[in-house]
Nucleic acid binder design. Structure first.
Lengths: 136, 136
DNA sequence: ATTATATAGGACTAAATCAGTACTAATTGA
DNA sequence: TCAATTAGTACTGATTTAGTCCTATATAAT
């Protein structure tokens, strides 16, 4: 199945809240309220995004998260990579020959790379802004 | 995780054997030999492909499978759809509003469709031939 | 007709993965 | 020092997938 994880799905929902105009950092609990997603889940997603520097975090009271970049400049590929890890549609993609026992005789070995690259490119060309409702 | 199933992976390996020049139908067991994949697994993949008419089957003794089309005309999208079902990166894609409890308030509802469409298109534009080794 | 060979279809089990939660540590403003 | 908030990690239950097996159906050869 070609599916993104729910975490990646949630990430976009969460980022949409952070993309709204605001001054102070926005807390995880506020985002959970707004999105009606469970608090721990929202926290987890925010941590993943912060670790990859898609968002910035501020600790302490009145801390929270900030979106430092414009939604136009954040690619869907980067969001998915932050939550799901590197995009690789098969184990064979970018694994140097030891993806499975069959690799030495496999007539397709290394060939999924092209498909993978095409998908990555498609998602790099699509921005957060493009999946937000105000955009057409 | 954006991953295709192993079945889809196997499907391409199996189709490569069927794409080799031949006259008579090729049996599942012969393909299993050639690919070193387990017999039941190969059978399962072949059945999935036959049901979607990507390959044709002949029953009875000296029966087997045939590839009726040229590898250039078989898209990666059609192969993945045959083994994995419709391509939908989230439950929200092409579901008329009842994908999850949050759909009525979701700021992203319906918005993954565009990403999904881009991925489908990328895979429709890529043929079986393009993932076979002799092709550059 | 009978038999052997091959696919069709569905059901089942074990393994891997993911979603979700909880807990503890670290940071910082008041 | 306390309270609020993020950081990191570990755990559990649920879901999905992979792989196998069994029975039914079709057909060529005899």
């Amino acid at each position: 199945m070609i599916k993104i994880s729910k975490m990646a799905d949630y990430a976009v929902v969460v980022l949409e809240v952070l993309a709204r105009p605001h001054n102070d950092p926005i807390s995880a609990s506020y985002i959970a309220e707004q999105t009606k997603l469970p608090d721990p889940t929202v926290s987890k997603v925010l941590k993943l995004l912060a670790r990859r520097n898609i968002i910035a975090s501020v600790r302490g009271p009145s801390g929270g998260y900030i979106l430092p970049s414009q939604p136009e400049t954040i690619s869907i590929a980067s969001i998915i990579e932050a939550t799901d890890g590197p995009i690789a549609i098969t184990d064979c993609v970018s694994s140097a020959g030891n993806c499975c026992e069959r690799s030495s005789i496999c007539s397709i070995h290394g060939r999924w790379d092209k498909v993978n690259a095409a998908l990555v490119q498609a998602m790099e060309n699509m921005s957060l802004k493009q999946v937000m409702k105000n955009y057409e």
